[in-house]
Simulated scan of single mutants.
Amino acid sequence: MNEAVRAVRDAGDVRAVPGRPADAVGDALLIAIDEAGIPVGARQISAALVGQGQRLSESTVARRLRQLDAEGLTLQVGGKGRVLTPAGSRAVERLRRTSRSASLVSASEVHTAQDVLNLLKARRAIEPEAVRDATAHISDAQLTALRKVVAEHHERARAKERPPRDIALTFHRLLAAPAQNPLVQAMIAIVLDDSHDHVEAALDVILEAHHHSAVSVAEHDSIIEAMAGRDAERAADLMRAHLDRLLEEVDAFVARYDAELLERLLRLP
């Protein structure tokens, strides 16, 4: 489905481009003009949308094009049709960035066993780099905060008490916080989002089933000490090994029980 058609079909879930009101039809026309690559008129745009399963009359398209002209987003080129102005091109790029961001958030939703594995694989790709970057910038105060989180987790594991469902994710978030790379931070924000607290709760059950909760705490402690020693490569390697083991734990749990049991855990309040 092309982007112009998708913009019309998604009219019920419109995200406004910064600086202008949400307008699914207008956005669809901007994208259609951009995709054409040459000046196009109302008849061509209407026909293209009809050919792709969407019906916007030529008169509706013509009216909306005049509105886009008034907004400074499109420009009439003689009798050939409309092209995008520089402002229109910027609006289309913002629309595409918004669409990509929404797709990333949607892709990170976790409902199934395979979703859990996909999330852990994404974290394995991102978190070692975040740890490597963070090691160069982490402060003594941040190290102290991390050690407090690990100490609480260790006490809970030693007493065989259920840890708070977000304690491990809190550790991972604090660990990545000093990283300076903005792209890494943007990806970390997605894979360690608060919406994944239920995943961590399910992982706690899996680790407890294998009596491996204390192993995770020890791995967290090792990562902190590598960072405290400013050994970025060792810290990154330890994080990768930690996430590799979590992947193995999930695979073993699903093989021993079944994917449905993990999915029931994900649905727990």
Rank of each mutant, 00 (worst) to 15 (best):
L169H: 05
S195H: 14
D231M: 01
R66D: 14
E200S: 08
A134V: 05
E93D: 10
A179W: 09
M187Q: 10
Q67K: 09
L30H: 15
A125V: 04
R66T: 07
R264E: 12
S213P: 05
V205I: 09
L84T: 08
Q67Y: 08
A28D: 13
A91K: 04
I138R: 13
V25P: 05
E35F: 10
P86H: 05
D27K: 02
E35T: 07
A236C: 03
I188R: 12
L247R: 08
A7D: 11
A218F: 04
L29E: 14
R9W: 12
L120V: 02
H242T: 01
D244A: 06
L146E: 11
V83K: 06
S89I: 00
K160E: 14
V105L: 09
L120P: 00
A241Q: 14
D27E: 13
S216E: 10
D231F: 02
E129K: 03
A214F: 11
A226R: 01
E58A: 13
H111K: 12
Q67L: 09
E161C: 08
R94V: 01
I190N: 15
V215W: 15
D194W: 08
E109F: 07
E208S: 13
L262G: 07
P39T: 09
E129N: 01
T85E: 14
T60H: 14
E200D: 06
H172V: 00
Q180Y: 01
D251C: 02
D140G: 04
V205N: 10
A235W: 04
L265S: 01
R94M: 06
K160T: 01
H153C: 08
T60W: 13
A22H: 07
I223V: 08
R234I: 00
M227V: 00
A141R: 13
R6G: 03
A177M: 07
S108W: 03
F171E: 00
T144C: 06
R9T: 04
E249G: 02
A136Q: 15
N118V: 01
R64T: 04
T112E: 11
V40F: 14
D194H: 11
T135N: 15
S222F: 05
H242L: 07
Q76L: 10
K148P: 00
L247W: 03
G19P: 06
R234C: 02
L207I: 00
S57L: 12
D34E: 15
E219L: 11
P86R: 02
A4P: 10
V254I: 07
D140R: 07
L266N: 08
L84M: 14
L265N: 03
E260R: 00
R6I: 01
L84D: 15
D193M: 04
E249W: 12
Q67T: 02
Q54E: 15
R82A: 13
S222N: 08
E263Y: 06
A24W: 09
A186R: 07
A228E: 13
